[in-house]
Design a protein around this nucleic acid. Structure first.
Lengths: 147, 147
DNA sequence: TTTGAAAATTGGCCTAA
DNA sequence: TTAGGCCAATTTTCAAA
């Protein structure tokens, strides 16, 4: 029993580990790997989905291959009183793929995709920089994903 | 035709968008949404997988619900000559979920999961800090994911 | 694109711990 | 009470035409 009242055992962890590598693997196949029954796997996954342990399944895309050549992690600093509204506003932009609030160097961290450097500048400074309360924008450009 | 010789049309993009939201959606359902045939969708997805446009499918987990209460983006600075070996070494640790090389504040960016603050310290300073060539470790703790 | 066989999914019901 | 086994109906997958 963890601190959220959810029970995760060894078998659940193994299922998650398999789905982390291949989110489309069938119940039957997972069952074969773990030497158990399909129904057991299915019911465990269903439970984890219902309890929110599994938030969903996502395709992983290679951004340059669809024309997005500039991927960044971009930190935002804001006026303290505008913090929440900036975070909320950032979520609305299609170019902003992910948004986190954080401690450390920046209050808000984002993942932003752009087709090229020119487009990145437009997104960061013409669009996001004009959100009320944004103080500083600190982009980190990803060169390569290793893991 | 993009700069990697891959052709992605409107329909492919729509398929990817659907899979970005639900990576387990069936070909049949995707076909229904896009008002096309199951085999068309399936063959397009197969082609995108083969061309590496689709790198894979991943389950998305809520880390605190499986006991990982501290999620960080952690930047690493290294001696220039040790840059590659550090990046490679970081990939080997089970706690280091993702590794990127990057420009900007840090040369290497990672996503690290820990059960609590104590475990995070052990990982960062006892384990990763001892990798040869690591100069500075800059963790950003994620408070909440918004998008 | 259509078709048909094989495989996977899904829900319900049952048993054992 | 709950996880898992079993079965049957439906849906999906997948390759050949």
């Amino acid at each position: 029993m963890d601190n959220n009242g959810n029970t995760i055992d060894e078998k659940d962890m193994k299922i998650l580990e398999i789905l982390r590598r291949d989110g489309r693997k069938s119940y039957t196949e997972i069952a074969k790997i773990l030497d158990t029954s399909e129904s057991s796997v299915r019911k465990r996954i269903k439970r984890m989905e219902e309890e929110g342990i599994i938030k969903g399944y996502r395709v992983e895309i290679d951004p340059p291959k669809i024309g997005y050549n500039v991927i960044t992690f971009t930190g935002f600093d804001t006026n303290p009183e505008d913090f929440l509204s900036v975070a909320k506003k950032l979520c609305e932009f299609e170019e902003v793929k992910r948004v986190w609030t954080s401690t450390g160097d920046h209050m808000i961290m984002t993942e932003i995709w752009a087709k090229d450097g020119k487009e990145l500048c437009e997104i960061l400074f013409d669009k996001l920089g004009k959100i009320k309360g944004v103080r500083r924008i600190c982009p980190t450009i990803i060169l390569e994903q290793w893991k």
